Amino acid sequence: MNLALWIAAGLLAVVALSGGISKAFVPKEKLAAVHGGGWTADASVGFVKTLGVLELLAAAGLILPATLGIAPVLVPVTAVCWILLMAGAMITHGRRGESAFVVLNLVYLAVAAFIAWGRFVLEPFTG
């Protein structure tokens, strides 16, 4: 189970890293032109950049605390925060009629729920 939780955290960290980089560093106009990025046209630049920074922090929070042995409880806490972020993403894409992205966000949410449950209940980090 420990290995499965590490793999899930690693995969979700890659997703968060790629999303965070694009939102934090790609101009909003370019994001709006990409499939699935239309929502950015209705959002401020600051909001999009803030989401990007949050996703970058999530990528770090899913891996670094346990890897460094510094406050590893932050791994499942980060996973819970990711669940909240994905709920918001699902609402946003749902309002826009983008059901494929709602399903994708639901998958990411499920992976985060698995990490949170696994690290809070099944195999918490010790010491």
Results as ranks from 00 to 15, higher is better:
Val107Ser: 08
Met86Asp: 03
Ala71Glu: 12
His93Lys: 10
His93Glu: 08
Gly97His: 10
Val107Ile: 15
Gly97Met: 14
Val77Trp: 01
Leu104Tyr: 09
Tyr108Cys: 12
Ile83Gln: 02
Leu85Thr: 04
Asn105Lys: 03
Gly118Leu: 02
Phe101His: 07
Gly69Asn: 11
Met86Arg: 02
Ala116Leu: 05
Ser99Gly: 03
Thr78Ala: 12
Trp82Leu: 14
Gly97Gln: 11
Val77Ala: 15
Glu98Thr: 09
Ile115Trp: 00
Val102Glu: 02
Val103Leu: 11
Ala110Gly: 13
Ile115Pro: 01
Pro76Thr: 07
Ala87Tyr: 11
Ile115Gln: 00
Arg95Asn: 11
Leu74Lys: 06
Ala112Trp: 00
Val80Ser: 04
Gly94Arg: 09
Val103Gln: 06
Ile91Cys: 06
Thr92Phe: 06
Ser99Tyr: 14
Leu109Phe: 08
Gly118Val: 00
Cys81His: 03
Cys81Glu: 05
Met86Lys: 03
Thr67Leu: 12
Ile91Val: 14
Glu98Ser: 08
Met86Glu: 03
Gly69Arg: 09
Ala116Phe: 04
Trp82Lys: 01
Asn105Glu: 06
Ile91Tyr: 10
Ala71Gln: 15
Ile115Asp: 00
Val111Asn: 01
Ala87Pro: 01
Arg119Asn: 06
Thr92Tyr: 02
Met90Gln: 11
Leu85Tyr: 04
Ala89Ser: 09
Ile91Glu: 14
Glu98Arg: 09
Pro76Glu: 11
Ile83Gly: 01
